[in-house]
């Protein structure tokens, strides 16, 4: 066991997740997809709306997962990227009458640039320092959106109202149902893109940086480029989620995008399993539904109940939903053998 390791290098903050373990098998994927496709037919509009929000938050958690699970960088500033995406869409739709679908790629590009630029100073920071820097971004964003000279565009503290789109081509479905399917298509497209990204050369570079930055640079990975790239991609995906969120909620305001949102997204990632992309949706479900459940159990103590539930989850599965999936797989494997 004499591993040729001169110095025990500092353990990476994010554990290594092998590439294959970051996704779901084909069979399971198709099952989940089928369920997501059929579901709206059987439920009320309000539930459809909630499912849409679930997909949107899932997308935002996925974005954080690309950054943290993929490249090992930590961010408490995702709410800022989400806000930029949401505002891009709102301003384009309400001030310039741009079609809602077109605002998504624009928001993505704007956020990519923003994230890429933010990634530059972040390069010199890691761990708690990066957490603090991204935290600063998250606290600054709502204040920046309230600035006087932007008020004409952003609507200041009041925010902007966004019109919900109707189903196109006279399709016989409600606005909510249409938006659900629209969101579903976008989310699936980005999910497939992300999976492929992490399997690609860039994805391997991200993971090399995550697992050992020095070794990665020694192998010829341009660490600075890929770290900022990871920030850019994560910001872009978060921005698209923000756009969809603005359309779904029909409203943007500075105080919807505080640090609380960033913390929720972080919790979603942990609960879903850091580095496991399909877990993002599970994490999103946690951050959407568990606060409601907590409120249902006790109004006065809802925060405490939420905390206790969160503790229960991390005690039972410290590695999040990924752990459940692995256990399930092992169990299925055993069944097959017998």
């Amino acid at each position: 066991m004499s591993a040729a390791e001169d110095v025990v290098t500092e353990a990476p903050a994010v554990e290594a997740v092998p590439k294959r373990a970051m996704t779901l098998g084909t069979g399971t994927s198709l099952l989940v997809l089928a369920a997501l496709l059929i579901m709206p037919v059987f439920v009320k509009n309000f539930i459809i709306f909630q499912m849409t929000m679930l997909l949107i938050y899932g997308l935002a958690v996925l974005a954080l997962n690309i950054l943290t699970g993929g490249s090992g960088q930590f961010s408490l500033g995702q709410s800022a990227f989400y806000a930029v995406g949401a505002y891009t869409t709102a301003v384009l739709m309400e001030h310039f009458n741009v079609n809602y679908a077109l605002t998504l790629p624009i928001a993505g590009v704007v956020c990519f640039a923003f994230g890429f630029l933010f990634g530059q100073p972040a390069l010199r920071l890691s761990g708690v320092y990066l957490a603090l820097a991204t935290f600063a971004l998250a606290t600054a964003m709502p204040q920046l959106l309230k600035l006087n000279f932007l008020e004409h565009w952003t609507g200041g503290v009041q925010g902007l109202v966004v019109t919900k789109p109707d189903a196109p081509f006279g399709l016989p479905m409600s606005q909510d149902m249409w938006l659900y399917y629209f969101t579903l298509v976008v989310v699936i497209a980005i999910y497939i893109f992300s999976v492929n990204l992490l399997r690609s050369r860039s994805g391997r570079a991200f993971m090399a940086i995550r697992d050992n930055e020095i070794a990665a640079s020694a192998m010829g990975v341009d660490v600075a480029l890929y770290k900022t790239l990871a920030f850019g991609v994560s910001a872009a995906v978060t921005g698209v989620a923000g756009s969809l969120g603005a359309i779904a909620v029909q409203f943007v305001a500075p105080d919807s995008y505080t640090i609380t949102l960033a913390i929720s997204l972080f919790l979603g990632m942990v609960v879903g399993g850091v580095g496991w992309l399909p877990g993002s949706i599970v994490g999103a479900a946690f951050i959407i539904f568990v606060p409601n459940i907590a409120e249902g159990i006790s109004k006065g103590l809802s925060g405490a109940v939420f905390g206790v539930l969160l503790f229960l989850v991390i005690y039972l599965v410290p590695h999040g939903a990924r752990q459940v999936a692995i256990l399930g797989q092992q169990f299925a494997g055993k069944l097959r053998k017998n």
Binding site: V14, F266, V270, A304, G307, F311, P318, G320
Partner: peptide, 16 residues
């Protein structure tokens, strides 16, 4: 447990 899970624990403690 991983560090990030511990951080989630801090947030839970905060809420409680």
């Amino acid at each position: 447990a991983p560090i990030l899970t511990n951080v989630a624990g801090f947030i839970a403690l905060f809420a409680i």
